[in-house]
């Protein structure tokens, strides 16, 4: 797959097989193969990752917010192996379902502590 990483991959929306929104490509992890050639290994997603990429006061703020809602610190980024990527058009489309990926920590925290406690949280409004 030929892609301009900064233009076509970074900051793109990630969408799973069923159209659920997984997150954004907040950063990219490289690995080096046996011949010393670097390649894209994983897409990284999460506010903490974005915060570290942005840096500065704003970045630190994002990281601290992400850590507040996480079970463990530092918050590990959600890693999406490139092998799970089916294609890239106006979004990055995955082969798998969002449920098969590690859940986003903030979503899990808010679901457990706030949203699930409100009656009707399980029903889609349609």
């Amino acid at each position: 797959m030929r892609l301009q990483l900064a233009k076509q991959l970074l900051d793109q929306q990630i969408v799973d097989r069923e159209g659920r929104l997984v997150g954004r490509v907040d950063d990219i992890a490289f690995a080096v193969d046996a011949d010393g050639v670097p390649y894209v290994d994983c897409l990284l997603s999460g506010q903490g990752v974005l915060g570290r990429r942005l840096g500065g006061r704003v970045g630190r703020f994002l990281v601290s917010v992400a850590e507040r809602f996480a079970e463990q610190t530092p918050v590990p980024p959600r890693r999406i192996p490139l092998t799970q990527v089916a294609g890239v058009d106006s979004a990055v489309r995955l082969r798998c379902r969002a449920a098969d990926l590690p859940p986003p920590p903030m979503e899990t925290w808010l679901r457990r502590h706030i949203i699930d406690r409100i009656p009707g949280a399980h029903r889609a409004s349609r």
């Binding site: 659920r20 997150g23 974005l50 949203i115 699930d116 949280a121 889609a124």
Partner: peptide, 23 residues
């Protein structure tokens, strides 16, 4: 901005961050 699941089509628990911001 953050790429979270949003919208009224999924149940609130599947869009917990979206509904938290709303609240």
């Amino acid at each position: 901005y953050f790429g979270w699941q949003w919208g009224q089509r999924v149940s609130p628990r599947e869009a917990a961050r979206f509904h938290s911001v709303l609240l």
